[in-house]
């Protein structure tokens, strides 16, 4: 069992193997993502019942909640692949970590913007210092930090390592930030309506949400695979195997 894990890891860490296999993954991931998005959006936006308190404006959760979840998971994935790079020094791990950062940032921005749009009809203002939105904003700053650091360092080897160290420090900090922001929020002004906390959701509302969450994760994987393929193309541009593959 353990040997198989090591074997898989070694294969996964080989840029050549990853590049050749991943073209198939791209097809499948795209197909699942498109189907999932169509099903989830049509069901959620057209057929799910309106919320008794918030009316139709609640439907933005079908974008907001998946984006927020994926933005947080992406940060964890980025930090874990960064750690893998620091420990085992396989370059694939660094490339994957670098591939994740802008995607996570984009999801973070989507979550913030949709949160603000939802806030206008619900709270009557574009921005409330709601605990979840505030943590999301800090997460966005953490992403900015990692990307700015990698971009400022000329040597890519050093940049990957520096980014990995910073994202690990951020990873330890995320739970502390979340907890402190929640505490701060109760100290000052608790928002009466929460975007996500529902005591019980109608199944017709819940199913499309679950589908959209799954789809968002598939889409994240798809973006990571595509961006990692780009990193491989760039870094392995002088290798023979790549020119052989690209001839066909």
């Amino acid at each position: 069992m353990w040997q198989q894990v090591v074997q898989f890891y070694n294969r996964f860490a080989s840029p050549k193997w990853f590049y050749q296999q991943s073209s198939v993954w791209v097809t499948w991931l795209s197909a699942v993502a498109i189907t999932g998005a169509l099903t989830g959006l049509v069901w959620g936006l057209l057929f799910a019942p309106a919320d008794y308190q918030q009316g139709n404006s609640f439907r933005i959760i079908y974008i907001h909640v998946p984006a927020a979840l994926v933005a947080q998971s992406a940060y964890i994935m980025m930090a874990v692949s960064g750690a893998a790079y620091l420990i085992w020094q396989r370059k694939m791990a660094a490339w994957i970590a670098r591939a994740i950062a802008p995607v996570g940032t984009a999801f973070c921005l989507i979550a913030l913007v949709t949160g603000a749009i939802w806030g206008k009809p619900t709270w009557g203002t574009w921005w409330m210092w709601d605990a979840r939105l505030t943590s999301m904003l800090v997460l966005l700053f953490l992403y900015f930090g990692v990307m700015a650091l990698q971009q400022a360092i000329e040597s890519s080897d050093v940049g990957y390592r520096a980014g990995a160290i910073l994202s690990l420090v951020g990873l330890v900090n995320i739970p502390i930030i979340k907890y402190s922001v929640e505490w701060w929020n109760t100290l000052h002004q608790p928002a009466t309506l929460k975007l996500t906390e529902k005591p019980s959701m109608h199944p017709d509302m819940l199913w499309p949400l679950l589908i959209m969450i799954g789809t968002a994760y598939v889409f994240l994987l798809l973006m990571i695979v595509l961006r990692t393929r780009n990193e491989i193309l760039w870094h392995e541009r002088k290798r023979q195997w790549l020119s052989k593959v690209l001839e066909f």
Binding site: G145, I153, I176, I177, Y179, S180, V181
Partner: peptide, 27 residues
């Protein structure tokens, strides 16, 4: 330590560190 070797790193340093200071500030 991360920005010591980068020219003009003081603004970058602020960008990296300020989000991590949030919990201290809050409490």
């Amino acid at each position: 330590a991360l920005t010591a070797g980068i020219g003009g790193g003081s603004l970058l340093l602020a960008l990296l560190i300020l989000p991590l200071y949030v919990p201290v500030l809050i409490f």
